[in-house]
Design a protein around this nucleic acid. Sequence first.
DNA 1: ACGTCACTACAGAGTCGTCGGTAGGTGATG
DNA 2: CATCACCTACCGACGACTCTGTAGTGACGT
Lengths: 203, 203
Amino acid sequence: MSSAPVSPNGVRHGARGRARREEILRAAIEVIAERGFRGSSIAAVAEKVGLTQQGLLHYFPTKDELLIAVLRQRDEWDTGDSPEAAGNDWTMGNLATLVEANAARPELIRTFSALLGESVTEDHPAGAYFHDRYRGTREDMESILRREWGEDLPSGLTAAQAAPLLVAVMDGLQFQWLHEPEAVDLVAAFRAFVGLLGTRAAE
Amino acid sequence: MSSAPVSPNGVRHGARGRARREEILRAAIEVIAERGFRGSSIAAVAEKVGLTQQGLLHYFPTKDELLIAVLRQRDEWDTGDSPEAAGNDWTMGNLATLVEANAARPELIRTFSALLGESVTEDHPAGAYFHDRYRGTREDMESILRREWGEDLPSGLTAAQAAPLLVAVMDGLQFQWLHEPEAVDLVAAFRAFVGLLGTRAAE
DNA sequence: ACGTCACTACAGAGTCGTCGGTAGGTGATG
DNA sequence: CATCACCTACCGACGACTCTGTAGTGACGT
């Protein structure tokens, strides 16, 4: 794929535009982490990559389209980043390592937590994205749970009952962690919850 | 010296003014639910109560102070609304009824979920509030758990381990519920989680 | 009963900054 | 010479907030 030497300014080659796009997306993620989407300006993103606002608009014609591109980029990372695995060889075990990987990228977590919050408001451009993503993620979790333990988990819950809880724990812990990184151990807490799901009930 | 109630900026308000203030706070909650805090304008809030923007600023001298007042109001509701219970007679049981009560006020949930999301961004006026609130809520949950089950829960977790999970589940479920009310049963899911905590581990 | 006077509860008009977006270019690259 | 990668210049809308008034209200002295 990529075949272009990259430099912030002045390097010429065909792929210059594409490199710029990626720079812009990275900058956008940072700015959104700092100010949210509604609170951030495309001018701020542009400045971060050494462009004018209009220069940025050359690549992303509207602010909303920039956001969509950020969202899409995240999906690409999620599916392409990890060892193979577009589809379905996830286990509860490497779900924890995913959380671990997330914990290493606080700005990314901050960005998407901020967007998640905004997305519950009316007519938010990320609303549809999170709506779909939740549906999909719950389904994924459900099938992971089923693959690990079958329809009924050791703890007595069904996979369908546990899936939304699993998603909720991941999201919810992130907020606490963002507010007090020292007070909340993201990975340990998540592992504790997974342990809870896998504990066989007595009686 | 008079003894009339005083607003943050030192303006004294009579009975009429106090009623107005409450109206404004209610309207502000609605507007924030629709647009978030950064996305909403004080003019929109003012219009909702039939004031001009300047009229509103008579009561709350800045947008930030309006938000602070909203936050404070919520705390007052939380501690004053429910049967007695400023302090500590909560149990796991009526924690679930609290969730139930929340589920009946979607706009309120929406408002505070939106604010929670924004609050992770830099210099957000609600940042300190959520920071403190998380700390306090976790402590409260911990002591409730301890009162219910002692230091070690039936499931094997300690109260300190379970508290952040409890908070995370409440927050996280709300986001899913706001995006798909039909797909997520807030109360049932929460009860399932509580059941999980209280399940005795085998062997 | 009446005038005064402080104070509350607003509104009109305006300042100043920032926002997203458009129009129309220019110079380099291929 | 067409296309790409950008920039200058600009616009209309809207943001929070200030300055400056003014109608009403209640307390109080006379």
